[in-house]
Design a protein around this nucleic acid. Structure first.
Lengths: 133, 133
DNA sequence: CTTCATGCAAATAATTTGCAGTAAG
DNA sequence: CTTACTGCAAATTATTTGCATGAAG
């Protein structure tokens, strides 16, 4: 269980209810977009505004607490910053699973004349449940 | 040189000036967003409207003529449909280069319990020019 | 000719901003 | 206490829609 308050303070951000709620929502969902966060946090904090979510999503990205996952044909989702990993996105049910970025894959991504800093890998296909149905 | 008219007709789309202009703009740029397409095509066709671009981008995506490339923190870009490839995105100058998706990389992406249909790989880092400066 | 595409203007959705009041440290 | 954060309303930007006119086949 991540300690959201510490996470914020380590980045010199005040630990407000709004911020910990947003982080909790992202953490629990795994991958979630702005509107879904809004719906989610409103259950506990009905006055929490969309503007606050927008402002904080930007701020937390800048502080590298959360990461944007841009999606094909829909709004970006956000996830807590974790070790490098790849996304398995089910084209049927929409579920996103995280998977390891294997050392073998990493090796194959070393490319001439390009200094790699960060690999963003999204695999689209069918998850086990949708595949077998 | 791709023949835009044939490309459109093969998909039962009328080959209008607007559509061929949009395709030409995308083709020449390699990767380009809606606003940039608009600026670009207006040079030759000042009456071509943004609404037409939006409508056609959607249509051409549905017909698999063009592909959306969602970007971190900015509007999606579009490219002509090509064989699978990966993107090398320079975090300094923003340039996007295409690179081969090597057979070795492909092999390493075979993952248990997931039926892969399409791999979207964006590598962020520094291109040769920006790296050496 | 017939059908479908375009361009415009209006509608809607998404995101950002400014600022007075409020809470964190 | 002081500074930074929030919520609201307004502003801005992005995208979609309806419809009369025009062009493609």
């Amino acid at each position: 269980m991540t300690d959201y308050i510490t996470l914020l303070k380590n980045n010199d951000l005040k630990a407000t209810i709004q911020r910990t709620s947003i982080l909790k929502s992202i953490d629990q969902a795994g991958h979630i977009n702005i509107d879904e966060i809004y719906e989610d946090v409103r259950e506990q904090h009905p006055t929490l505004s969309l503007a606050t979510i927008y402002k904080n999503i930007i701020l937390m990205q800048q502080n590298n607490i959360i990461i944007e996952v841009p999606m094909n044909g829909e709004k970006s989702k956000y996830e807590l910053k974790k070790d490098d990993h790849i996304h398995l996105i089910c084209q049927n049910c929409g579920k996103i699973q995280d998977a390891q970025l294997s050392p073998r894959t990493q090796e194959t991504l070393i490319i001439e004349n390009f200094t790699l800093r960060n690999a963003q890998i999204n695999l689209y296909g069918y998850c086990q449940v949708c595949h077998t149905n």
